[in-house]
Amino acid sequence: MKQHKKLLINLVFAAVILAAAAVLLLVRKANQTGAPLCAELIYGDSNTRLTFPLEKDADYAVDTGYLTVHIRIRDGAARFVDSPCPDHICESFGWLSEEDQTATCLPARAVLSIVPTT
């Protein structure tokens, strides 16, 4: 009897955790706009913003005032490439293609994000 009660408590606990995860997933999906996406680079001390369409493959060089960052757009995704910064961590973020994905180059004071097209 005691073991049956313990099993029931564990099952209820698991059901609550799964329900909470499902709710969080639904809330996240509801917050996504479904609008076409673009890459947005915010850089420099004045937080300058540049947007790049993800539909057209291209390479961009942007002088942030600290370093020149290189952004590559390919197949609906964006990434930092050929970074002049000392540690190249920004390159290791890889390809960004989904809304709210972000890569940062701290030495260049630049943030690359995937955002809905405005």
Rank of each mutant, 00 (worst) to 15 (best):
L26D: 11
A19R: 06
L7I: 08
A14C: 14
T117Y: 09
P86M: 08
E98L: 11
I42G: 00
A14S: 15
D57R: 11
A108S: 11
Q3N: 11
I71P: 02
Y66R: 07
G94T: 07
F13G: 12
V111I: 13
L8C: 04
I89A: 04
L7N: 05
V62R: 04
I73M: 01
G94Y: 03
R49A: 15
C38A: 05
F13P: 07
D87V: 05
Y43E: 02
V62Y: 07
H70M: 09
A61Y: 12
H4C: 12
L7M: 10
F93S: 06
R72L: 09
C85V: 08
K2L: 14
C38D: 06
T33Q: 01
A14G: 10
T48M: 11
F13T: 15
D100E: 11
L54A: 08
P86E: 09
N31V: 15
A110H: 02
A20C: 05
S83V: 09
A30L: 14
V111P: 01
K29Y: 14
Y43D: 00
Q101M: 02
W95E: 05
A19E: 12
L54K: 00
I89G: 09
D75F: 08
L41C: 09
N10T: 12
L37Q: 00
I9V: 13
V16G: 09
A103F: 01
H88P: 03
L7W: 06
T48V: 11
P86T: 05
A110T: 06
E55P: 13
A20S: 14
L37W: 03
A77I: 03
P86L: 05
T102R: 08
I71H: 02
N47C: 10
L50Y: 10
S83Q: 03
L8D: 08
Y66P: 04
M1I: 13
S46L: 14
I17V: 14
T64C: 00
A30D: 07
G34T: 05
A108V: 04
I71K: 01
E55R: 13
F80M: 01
K2E: 12
A20T: 10
L50D: 03
M1E: 10
N10M: 14
L112I: 03
